[in-house]
Simulated scan of single mutants.
Amino acid sequence: MTTEVASVSDCSVHSCSFNHDGCTAFAITVGGSRDHASCSTFIDTSATGGLPMVLAHVGACQRTECSFNSHLMCGKTDVKIGSGADTADCLSYQPQ
């Protein structure tokens, strides 16, 4: 079982309300479909969201087929979010 919480080390999705020179959401959820994993916390709006500092972690991962998933938590040290099949994908996703 994972005992550490994965950080969001990079987010290149500039249209996300939580991205201010890094992800300012307290935690993100990784969701998506079987062939890719996306950031379910992504919000494309003019409202500014998040904390006053970059601190994001992966709170939950719904991609049970990802090799880093352990009890719905991300076992990777850090993840990167960016454009993929969707606007905001988990670029660290690796299916088993």
Rank of each mutant, 00 (worst) to 15 (best):
H14Y: 13
H14F: 13
A56S: 12
D89E: 01
V13W: 01
V79R: 06
T77A: 14
G31A: 06
G31D: 10
M53A: 15
P95A: 09
S15E: 08
S92P: 02
C16W: 03
C61R: 00
H14N: 14
D86Y: 03
M1K: 07
V54F: 08
D21Y: 10
D21A: 10
S9T: 09
V30F: 01
A27F: 08
S70G: 14
P95K: 06
C74G: 06
D21R: 12
H57T: 15
D86W: 03
S7F: 12
V13K: 04
G50T: 09
G49E: 10
H36N: 05
H36M: 04
H14E: 13
S9A: 12
S83R: 15
Q96K: 12
S67R: 10
D78E: 13
C74E: 05
M53I: 12
K76L: 14
G50I: 08
T87F: 04
K80A: 13
V5E: 11
I43D: 11
G31L: 05
A25K: 02
G84L: 01
G75S: 04
P95D: 06
P52L: 04
A27V: 12
G50E: 02
G31I: 01
A25V: 00
K76M: 10
H36E: 04
E4Q: 11
L51I: 12
R34N: 11
H71A: 13
H20Q: 06
S15D: 14
L51Q: 15
E4D: 10
T64Q: 13
V30Y: 00
A6F: 00
V54H: 07
H36T: 15
L91P: 00
L72P: 13
H20G: 01
A47Q: 10
E4W: 13
S9N: 09
A88C: 07
T3A: 04
G50R: 04
I28N: 00
V8F: 00
A47S: 14
C61S: 06
T41F: 05
V30I: 10
A56R: 05
S67A: 13
I81T: 09
F68Q: 15
C11P: 01
V30L: 08
D89G: 03
T41I: 00
G49R: 12
T29K: 03
S46M: 09
